[in-house]
Design a protein around this nucleic acid. Structure first.
Length: 263
DNA sequence: ATGGTTGGTTACCAA
């Protein structure tokens, strides 16, 4: 089972890149964030044409939006296993092999890392708090489950280009990394990317558009994640950050991440 | 300390 997660930054803007990615990587399931399209305008026929016609999506006009697509049938996840999340930031599906896929788009949080003066940052912390409650409620360790998405937090010092310079920058502040650690602990989740690469490699999945030479400057952050329940650890066979996709023509500012399981 | 770019929408907001 191969799963890819990608903040595509407008699905309609990047159908050609998505087609190339799916043809090259042939994932069993792809999870998208920031689709930026309301459900009535979601490009369903494109997904059917490229062989990913089993597609679930929850979006809104202009902002946010998530989707899960697969060549195989997708079933809804039981209601009791779904938290009270904002629809355009969360969607879940059950694959034919029984694996549940939870796809999140955590609020970015604005610029000012102070919940007292910045409502967006408050919303981000609240969202992660509700993720912790949800993880606890569905009882960890969650069996046959994968949690993926743009979590908008770079947890460790090796997930950012400069730990010191980013400690007060939203996405890497201690209050956020602690909140994300709590989510992880609440569900006994494992970070599949770190399980594969270890703790020491510098790993990034996002590079700002506001950098002329993003590749050489390499001022990246690892905001996109694939987590797994402990029961899947022994099945994890490969992980890749597909950073070449960040260099494609008119790219998203996020790279896709891929994980393979031999179930 | 500041500004840099992109997408959706159509004036700016969100990232």
């Amino acid at each position: 089972m191969k799963i890819i997660t990608w903040n595509i930054n407008s699905v309609r803007k990047r159908l050609d890149l998505l087609k190339d990615l799916l043809e090259r990587e042939k994932p069993d399931v792809i999870c998208l964030q920031e689709t930026k399209v309301q459900d009535a305008d979601f490009p369903v026929s494109f997904f059917e044409e490229v062989g990913y016609g089993n597609v679930m999506f929850q979006g809104m006009k202009s902002y946010h939006g998530v989707a899960i697509a697969s060549p195989q049938k997708l079933a809804p996840v039981a209601k009791k296993e779904i938290g009270p999340f904002m629809a355009p930031r969360f969607i879940a599906a059950k694959l034919e092999n029984g694996v549940r896929v939870f796809n999140f788009y955590v609020p970015a949080g604005g610029d000012e890392p102070d919940p007292e003066i910045n409502d967006k940052f408050r919303d981000k912390l609240d969202f992660m708090e509700s993720m912790s409650t949800w993880s606890s409620d569905i009882k960890g360790p969650v069996k046959k489950s994968v949690l993926v998405g743009d979590l908008n937090v770079a947890p460790s010092e090796h997930d950012v280009w400069s730990h010191k310079q980013l400690l007060k920058i939203v996405s890497h502040t201690p209050v956020e990394t602690e909140a994300l650690a709590k989510v992880m602990a609440s569900g006994n989740w494992l970070d599949a990317v770190r399980e594969h690469f270890g703790e020491d490699d510098e790993l990034y999945s996002w590079w700002s558009y506001r950098s002329r030479d993003w590749k050489n400057a390499n001022k990246g952050r690892r905001l996109d994640h694939i987590w797994m329940g402990k029961d899947l650890k022994k099945s994890l066979s490969d992980v890749a950050i597909l950073d070449d996709v960040r260099g494609w023509d008119t790219p998203s500012d996020h790279a896709p991440i891929s994980a393979e399981f031999k179930l």
